[in-house]
Design a protein around this nucleic acid. Sequence first.
DNA 1: GTAATTTGTGACAAAACTGTCACCAAGATG
DNA 2: CATCTTGGTGACAGTTTTGTCACAAATTAC
Lengths: 227, 227
Amino acid sequence: MQNNILIVEDDMAIREMMAFSLRREGFDTFKAASGHEALEQLNQVHPDLIVVDWGLPDMSGIDLIDMIRRDDVIKEVPIIMLTARAEENDKVKGLERGADDYLTKPASMLELMARIRAHLRRSKGFELNHKLEFQGIVMDAGAHEVMIDGEALNLSLTEFKLLKLFLQNPNKLLAREHILNHIWGRNTFVEDRTVDVHILRLRKALKAHRKDKWIQTVRGVGYKLAS
Amino acid sequence: MQNNILIVEDDMAIREMMAFSLRREGFDTFKAASGHEALEQLNQVHPDLIVVDWGLPDMSGIDLIDMIRRDDVIKEVPIIMLTARAEENDKVKGLERGADDYLTKPASMLELMARIRAHLRRSKGFELNHKLEFQGIVMDAGAHEVMIDGEALNLSLTEFKLLKLFLQNPNKLLAREHILNHIWGRNTFVEDRTVDVHILRLRKALKAHRKDKWIQTVRGVGYKLAS
DNA sequence: GTAATTTGTGACAAAACTGTCACCAAGATG
DNA sequence: CATCTTGGTGACAGTTTTGTCACAAATTAC
């Protein structure tokens, strides 16, 4: 699975040298010599990161960044601005207008590669790694999955939500009312004791893996997930 | 809601100046003069971003980054390395070992602020904006919520998963078998026609908001969400 | 020690969910 | 047009989920 980098650079020598270096580092590249060419490319391909020059023949790199950030499909792509403009206020402007990083020419290819990797690590890693974990209990809320010691745990929707609330608040005391409002909302009336019953059920589900003990009762207040 | 920045810097003059500048820009700050002090702070507070020097009295900033990246609770915090080490291979090393950004001293405070904001924009914005949308249907899978034109839609778990599959694949044709495998997995046998019944149910749920028409039948193959 | 309060628990009934089926409607083919 | 194939649909039965309740157990207070 190759990462794709879009290079937006009007100087052909620089563009080709960059593409060559990137390909040698294992990336696939797309190239554009102007802002409009870049936008056309972006209608057809979704690069994993874009390297943008400031001075393009048909628009400024800043304007291109603006447009990308406004496009619902590609707005989140990491962008590194690579330009000869080295003034402090240029850097501030580029970063404020939506670049994730700003590098001045002439730039070390090694440094550029390292920065590309750092940004990909964050944008890709966030998605891959965004799980809630506590003592061997792993939840991917987006995928609606709970794994304990490598085994899938089957929970009802209410119990799933309850466990998620605990995993989002490890070692924090959750008052019954807080739990009530969070799981059932403020516009639904359920008995206070319903929380306790669901806690019982969640504990039962976790018991097969000896994880029920982490849900601890704080008498008179509520419960907490703690080791 | 203030963003919290942890400054890990042994030079008191630099540390205080940074803290002052950050506070003037609206950030709250925590301070640490050493790696161990930083780790102790991180046991009690969760900053939104960390600025780390390389040369600390008790450990290198690189080692501190390693430790942070290995901690399940705080590993995703953005880190900017701010250091006098300006060699190319230092930069590469810092970025490879987990820094999101690398800035050499003496550094412009304005540039540092702009970079801090860029990183916060990404780490905070990713979470806030990561929703699936199609023609007024908005799903936050992590929160198990579906909103249509501002109104919550109540779906059963199976229908929720089905809608999610569609929203993840807008304008793509999904064969029945693909849907079957995705929702029920390969180890559960259900009749082919079960898909059609669940499509019916999903369409019924969407009908109240006139959104059922976006689920389109492709005869002999399956279904697609398309406008 | 006793009484009061809080939490744990099993059981129940109602509601919701789920997959299947038979029949009808729509579309494709010869 | 007739026939066959595929998708839409309402209904059904079984399972699961859900909230409540009464009683037992545990904890706290006097």
